[in-house]
């Protein structure tokens, strides 16, 4: 559990268009790495390349290496489906399966990995995941109700429960709070703080205060200009990025001069 990811010289393409160029970074285990930057700078694209969701877009591809604890994620014999089972993902808008109950939503991944899992094991894992997502007490009496009946914040925690149910090594979050109100955002941020004791977490956020609150390390992505590829400008301890960044563009961005 909780593995280190090393990215080296990663170029990410949509067909012939170079979207992100030359990203190298080390993502430490049991920590939260936040990725910030203006819209369209490629932070979500980069995030999606970590669990090979990027390549679902036709003709999308990457060059460079992503290594997770000595396992090359883009190696020749690596199954992207296997990668996604090790690296969970939470999306911008809560997306529980509308046709499934709360219970089945959490159990969905478990059933994929282990078709013959016993009912009692499944019950235990579902309860554990919902507890870990701080949702158990709110839904334990209505596990058979549809997940889409929950509030937005609850749905997002349900999605986190679904992602951690399969016990991934890494959890990717793509602006997980951007569709939520402040109270629900607070709940998710508290949850991120608890989850980082067990998982490696990478979070993309538009909210700089959020990055400052939840992350240990912050990476700043930027565009050189329109039509240019996004680049990782700098990555450092969150406290350093938000007090004395070494790059002028970073300072301009976090102090609100653009973006």
């Amino acid at each position: 559990m909780a593995k280190r990811i090393e990215v080296k010289d990663l170029d990410i393409y949509y067909d012939k268009f170079l979207a992100v160029q030359g990203v190298s970074m080390t993502i430490e285990p049991r920590s939260v790495t936040a990725l910030i930057g203006p819209s369209g700078c490629g932070k979500s694209t980069f995030l999606r390349s970590l669990n090979r969701m990027h390549e679902l877009v036709p003709h999308a591809r990457v060059e460079g290496t992503v290594v997770m604890d000595d396992q090359d994620l883009y190696g020749p014999n690596v199954d992207p489906v296997g990668v996604r089972r090790q690296i969970g993902m939470v999306f911008q808008r809560p997306n529980p399966f509308p046709t499934m109950s709360i219970y089945d939503n959490v159990a969905a991944g478990l059933r994929l990995n282990n078709a013959r899992i016993s009912k009692s094991d499944l019950d235990a894992l579902v309860e554990r995941s919902l507890r870990a997502a701080n949702l158990w007490s709110e839904v334990k009496d209505r596990l058979n109700k549809p997940g889409s009946g929950l509030s937005g914040g609850q749905q997002q925690r349900l999605c986190i429960a679904r992602a951690i149910a399969v016990q991934p090594d890494v959890l990717l979050m793509d602006e997980p709070c951007s569709a939520l109100d402040p109270i629900s955002t607070q709940a998710i941020e508290d949850l991120i703080n608890e989850l980082k004791t067990e998982y490696t977490i990478v979070i993309v956020t538009h909210n700089m205060q959020q990055a400052a609150r939840v992350s240990d390390t912050t990476g700043f992505f930027n565009l050189q200009g329109v039509g240019q590829p996004g680049q990782l400008v700098e990555i450092d301890d969150t406290t350093k990025i938000f007090s004395t960044p070494s790059n002028q563009a970073t300072e301009d961005y976090i102090s609100g001069r653009f973006g």
Partner: peptide, 25 residues
């Protein structure tokens, strides 16, 4: 697309994704 990606992100193959997201929808 969000539901299809939800299935793929927990490690569903294409067929499993169709069964989880597309067919029920």
């Amino acid at each position: 697309r969000l539901h299809e990606e939800a299935a793929l992100a927990i490690g569903a193959t294409r067929w499993e994704m169709l069964r989880m997201a597309v067919l029920p929808f």
